[in-house]
Nucleic acid binder design. Structure first.
Lengths: 203, 203
DNA sequence: TCTACTCTCGAACGGCGTTCGCGTCAAGTA
DNA sequence: TACTTGACGCGAACGCCGTTCGAGAGTAGA
């Protein structure tokens, strides 16, 4: 009932889910108290697909990167899930907790104090949600692939046309913002942040 | 007309704005083509309050931190603005561009290549949006301050009650997630990320 | 003054999340 | 078996939302 609902729809609505179940929207309220609760259940179901590794101090940094990448991948793979993740203030569902604990364990294996690990885990999950949400935009957006490419080119052209005296840097960076560099941007962010964590861990 | 609209409302709706202007919702469409455009105008107006510094290579890192802090502060100060920032795929309004250019200039002053600066700027603005959105939650949420504190305490208690064998780390970190540590979390993220950038800049 | 044109905005459309209580039906009792 | 009763599924409706349309008001030119 829960897992399949978010696969195919533009926006998950109570009416559409009810339709899927061949019933009226009112019937859903027999199982969940509101849409937010249903959203939490969906997010939790999706997070079950991300398995948390056993910390290995020798390669904890790669493990952290993998975990973030997996979380992003799984959120981006299901339409609307990333958005849901933002609307949930404090995640207390079983799989959310498991992810949180797993991330903490990895960061502690990297030599961070408990407080540092907590703050780092918070920042990383914030970034994962942010990136996944943005990624959902291009993956599931209303515009198709060809049109998206066209848009990208127009964007680059537009940036190049900016007045050089006001935007000396910006007009050169258009090419770095295509969909192809998305992965690269993620890798850069992970590398930079983890490099920073290693610096802070030594103090 | 534009600037004041987002100050007082839980959610900015076309009807409420029209009401504020003592007219019907249809009249707004004479000035903007849809809600998204109106949202862009509001975000741009708000960003005008963030002034972009002249890059100083001696203290570029502090300047970057200041810029991110200012962006967050200004977004968190206006209800609903942070959410709007997420829904805008590519910001092309004048002040958004100015912020982007300013950030690039600072990062380049720190010795990053153009590509590195682009990716770093992207990650930083992603984080700024993410943090500001989260911050909007506590600042403008439907629950009042006293109740929020109560909630926090319950949260800590709940985390302490988790089974120790499954969540050895998580059950100790409840205290680090209170509203008081929010600023500290931001500072940690900034410090870690900038430390990482300095490492990468040397290669 | 009359015409022609522009612009405003009341009313309505289709969709949303959620609520209410009627009607059905199964379990319990005689 | 026949009746009563209780729970509960869900059709219909409520009050929102963003957006559209065209009647009518307002204005400028002849």
């Amino acid at each position: 009932m829960i897992v399949l609902d978010d696969e195919g729809f533009d926006a998950v609505t109570m009416r559409r889910i009810a339709q899927e179940l061949e019933t009226g929207p009112a019937s859903l309220y027999a199982h969940v108290s509101n849409k937010e609760e249903l959203a939490e259940l969906m997010l939790d179901a999706v997070l079950a697909d991300v398995l948390v590794p056993e910390p290995d101090p020798a390669r904890w940094d790669e493990q952290v990167k993998d975990l973030v990448r997996d979380q992003i991948q799984v959120m981006a793979a299901h339409r609307g899930i990333a958005r849901i993740a933002w609307d949930i203030a404090v995640p207390v569902t079983p799989n959310s907790l498991k992810q949180g604990e797993g991330m903490l364990a990895l960061l502690r294996a990297g030599g961070l104090t408990l407080k540092q690990a907590t703050f780092a885990g918070d920042a990383l999950s914030l970034y994962a949600k942010a990136y996944a949400y943005e990624a959902s935009g291009w993956t599931w957006g209303e515009i198709d692939q060809a049109e998206a490419g066209e848009r990208g080119k127009q964007m680059v052209a537009y940036m190049r046309s900016l007045p050089a005296e006001s935007f000396p840097n910006l007009l050169q960076v258009g090419e770095f913002f295509s969909a192809e560099t998305a992965k690269e941007r993620l890798e850069f962010a992970l590398e930079a942040y983890l490099a920073g964590l290693k610096v802070l861990a030594k103090n």
